[in-house]
Design a protein around this nucleic acid. Structure first.
Lengths: 204, 204
DNA sequence: CTCCAAACTTGACGATGTAAACTTTACACA
DNA sequence: TGTGTAAAGTTTACATCGTCAAGTTTGGAG
């Protein structure tokens, strides 16, 4: 069958993907409170109860959107890494910039990702290593792990730092976010500490 | 401050405070999704539309609860500071422990505090200095600010680190939160980096 | 005592999530 | 080729939610 939806057809083609896409658009345009099963259905051009056949209630839809958002999150960081310098230090810096930029450009989606329960839907991603958004960060931390040390120490420090700054920045803790023309200026303390965390990459 | 006594109400003694208290209880017992105007009203023993006379819609109620939660947050940190050592390093460590502990013990309230728009309701608190939860943290950072330096640099680093760890911990990024008997064990990397951030207090 | 405004109630409306019953379509299978 | 069945989507219904409008109670000022 063709992937183009036939309006005469009772079936949609790929309603699940269409609903996720609609949800992300709604999130971007109208914020987290506007993300609704019925609105997603309407935007996808189906009846209000259609999503029930693809997601387990509104929580299921939110989880699926969060998962898709998590993947776009990862791609943003990969792109940032590729665009910057190629040293281990530059990699960490670029990825953290990508982290912040994604959140600033997709605040509602970012909030959704971190408000879907205990991230249960990413459990397999977390174990998949480099395939997940945090795998990219983990990869960037690896060169700075001293031989024999637990990599999670540095990972925890870097994740906490970049995520905390990003979340607080979105929350307006560092001043009204929309009044800040360049959020990278505020980002300097994080970058400087990042350098201190990394120190010298453990060569070998 | 709220004068509890003479706010002579006709039917209820102090419905506004009762609604906030009911909301916090609902949050603690049933989570963020269960926080509802009607449920708060029912628990406080009033009709479903009574809250409208004290808060501007559900957003107003959430904001008021967040504000009260923010104050309890601050008190938790103050208590932690008083219970620990009295050196500048011990102050920062105790406060960060209080930060994490409050979030672990009140996850829904913590989430609410950081999900109420751009924290507009705390604007005056932010400027009030030590009177706010972040004022306590700011105070603890002060001894480590080099003479003439911008205090916001170290503040940003410490806030981002402790808040990021706390938020990610609640989200389960470091593993299922309920499967972690002692969250302070995971906290070690943060503490070690905190020591590195602080370095030597700028004796003045 | 009268009267008013604040505090609260009642009733209604549209929007939402969800479940059940129904209809259409695709596809395996004979 | 024809048919049955299950998936996919629709329709209807219902409880709950936020919010508004109007009515009712209450305390106190004049």
């Amino acid at each position: 069958m063709v992937e183009v939806k036939d309006k005469k057809s009772h079936h949609h083609g790929d309603l699940r993907a269409a609903l996720i896409q609609s949800g992300i658009e709604i999130l971007t345009e109208s914020g987290l409170d506007s993300l609704t099963l019925r609105r997603c259905a309407a935007r996808a051009g189906v009846s209000h109860a259609a999503p029930a056949h693809h997601f387990d209630g509104v929580a299921g839809l939110r989880g699926a959107i969060a998962k898709e958002g998590f993947d776009r999150f990862r791609q943003t960081m990969l792109k940032a890494r590729a665009a910057g310098g190629q040293s281990p230090e530059a990699h960490i810096r670029s990825i953290c910039r990508g982290y912040l930029d994604f959140a600033v450009e997709n605040p509602a989606l970012f909030a959704l990702i971190f408000s879907c329960g205990p991230m249960a839907q990413f459990e397999e991603d977390m174990k998949a290593g480099d395939a997940s958004a945090y795998g990219v960060l983990r990869q960037a931390c690896a060169p700075f792990v001293p031989p024999g040390a637990d990599p999670r120490i540095i990972e925890t420090q870097v994740w906490s730092l970049i995520h905390g700054f990003t979340h607080l920045f979105l929350a307006g803790t560092f001043g009204p976010a929309n009044a800040t023309p360049d959020h990278h200026a505020l980002f300097a303390p994080v970058m400087s500490l990042l350098q201190k965390i990394g120190g010298e990459p453990a060569t070998g």
